[in-house]
Design a protein around this nucleic acid. Structure first.
Lengths: 266, 266
DNA sequence: CAGTGGTCTAGACCACGAT
DNA sequence: TCGTGGTCTAGACCACTGA
């Protein structure tokens, strides 16, 4: 089984080219993935095999694979192999704030996240819950219109959909609002917004700000992110006619979510 | 100058730890960045210096730096050094579709991108313009409500703001709409939506879908992205009361943009 | 136990930038 | 010219997975 193996679809590498050998190897493999000669789930040839096929050092092959990994195109399993994967998961959840924030969902006891999950038939679960009073972080203070030193109440959670963690969230509330269920481990059916409206406030709109970046090692671990998967850094502020009542932040796994917005054009 | 240098703020590395040495070195450097002992623009110690300070092989130091680079926290300059950078640029443009899509901007001759750029006082420029008739790509066909084989007109461009490329865009139009300025290199003041409305169509809303991923090597080159910078993959569809008229796609540099949406909550 | 990927070493030679 | 990062080699030993 050893020795003579040749993959006729692999182009030759030019060691005298300006383009480094490891990038040429990555190009060749990426090309096979794009041509669908290698499909999601397929195993790439082992490092040893590639080293032989490209007649190079193992370190050079590993750099090529590291490149594809950083692009989010392959995942490695120790002791098993390297596998092609989708850059965005095929069954990614679509987040539709213009739908999920409607009052009738709150009245039905459906939190926004539950609306997302229902569209995929996935159960929602939470863990790593932390309740605390903290000084408002700068971006929260700015959104809530208070000083940075002001004490606010925060509920931090890790949210799961099915067997995967998808978001690390933090809901910040001014202290005068943080009473009853809004201070509890489980905020109850319909979510924070439902509780706020039951207290007599009428929410008019929310503002969402999104940024995108690579995860910190901590986020990568807590969200179980593979290499080459970015996160969306979201800040959502809920308003009544005259006041910001809640500032909600989430770090969202980029390969498990899509975002959809509907915007008036007039 | 050589030999005795010691950085008292660098913690010792434990070679017997389960955590690999290169990750411990990355941790130590990341820690300094987070403590702001190293600020954006600052140079890290050279590879040779770090190799001495941590008493390890150069390859191990390079792996640590590669890790920070993939996280988007440092950038390297050949022949110069490794520098701390912001994960998201401090002067990132804020894209506010709920504002930029208003009709009064179109009537003033301001395209949405121009509205974004004006908020930072940056000039807008385009290059790599391609005009073509092509079979509708799947996601475009789906949004426009036509078959995949249907021929559509596309205008592809690279957009710059100031000295930096920020987006690779493609505007797809059904052939019956692709006439006059809508078929030209320069679509004219107010952008595509202005031209469409001048033809008697009244746009009611747009739908934006966002995904996030690492760039392809081609996108990385064309957008001049540094390592560890993801892109936003955007699809925007413009509707009249009864029809999708335009499907616009953009690949947007993740470190140069923030996104802001305003959503009704009732 | 054989095959897989993960870590680390110690060197070599190169291209680039500042001086 | 010298210091910087970029590429590549050839080996070693390890931890994990599956048969």
């Amino acid at each position: 089984m050893h020795g003579a193996e040749r993959n006729p679809t692999l182009p030759d590498i030019d060691p005298t080219s300006d383009r480094p050998v490891y990038k040429q190897i990555a190009d060749a493999l990426r090309d096979q993935i794009e041509r669908e000669a290698l499909e999601p789930g397929d195993r790439l040839p082992s490092e040893a095999t590639l080293t032989r096929q490209f007649d190079t050092a193992r370190g050079t092959v590993r750099r090529a694979l590291a490149l594809l990994s950083a692009e989010g195109r392959v995942r490695t399993e120790r002791g098993v192999g390297v596998f092609v994967k989708n850059v965005v998961e095929a069954d990614a959840v679509v987040r539709q704030p213009y739908d999920r924030l409607k009052r009738h969902y709150r009245r039905q006891g459906k939190s926004p996240l539950l609306v997302d999950a229902d569209s995929r038939g996935l159960p929602v679960r939470q863990d790593m819950v932390e309740l605390a009073e903290v000084p408002a972080p700068p971006r929260v203070a700015e959104r809530l219109g208070v000083d940075t030193e002001t004490t606010v109440f925060v509920r931090r959670r890790r949210m799961w959909m099915g067997r995967t963690p998808t978001q690390l969230t933090a809901a910040y509330l001014p202290l005068d609002l943080a009473v009853g269920a809004l201070r509890a481990e489980d905020v109850g059916e319909g979510g924070t917004h439902a509780r706020i409206e039951e207290m007599g406030h009428r929410l008019t709109h929310v503002v969402e700000q999104l940024g995108v970046r690579m995860p910190t090692p901590r986020e990568k671990r807590q969200l179980r992110l593979q290499a080459g998967v970015p996160v969306v850094d979201l800040t959502q502020t809920a308003y009544t006619a005259d006041r910001a009542l809640e500032c909600f932040t989430a770090v969202i796994a980029g390969d498990r979510y899509r975002f959809e917005y509907r915007i008036p054009a007039e």
